[in-house]
Amino acid sequence: MMSIKIICSVIIVVCSTIIGFRAANRYVLRIRQIRALQLAFAQLESEIISYSTFLPEAVKKISGVVQEDIGVLFNEFADRLIDKSGDSVSEAWQESLRVCKKYLHINSEEIEILTAFGGVLGASDKESQRSYFEILQNQLKNQEKQAEAACSKYQNMYKSLGLLGGLTIVILLF
């Protein structure tokens, strides 16, 4: 009877530790995805400004290059553009953001920035496109800084919280 108790306690502690690590990992993933987004939009900018590629082709090309989860988002966007389903660029972008939300670990503030950018993407001449890209990059850089601050603050907290929470449950049940 005692051994079953001990085994179950160990399982509870391990599970809650894993939950804590996953919660802490969310912050790391958020930073990684913001960086990937910066890279992806820098590439998109050079495709549009320097090579004058069509938007669907440029987006499709980028979806293969960048980090997986962001690639899924761009792939969805490209498919919607190529389909010519009747959506405008901003509608397609919003729709693909909505669909891919579950792969993205970025928060609502970043989603808002991206949605706003979708509204001006491909809707004006080269010069203003360039300034829009610049604004977007600055905003993403700010978000990256915020995400880093949050990460250093909460990462350790969630890790120890998971382990200690598990220990508390075990002691209460023992």
């Binding site: 909460y154 907290m157 120890s160 200690l164």
Partner: peptide, 10 residues
């Protein structure tokens, strides 16, 4: 310990 950790994280 939990108190300490949470206080440190603000």
């Amino acid at each position: 310990v939990l108190n300490h950790v949470l206080n440190r994280a603000g």
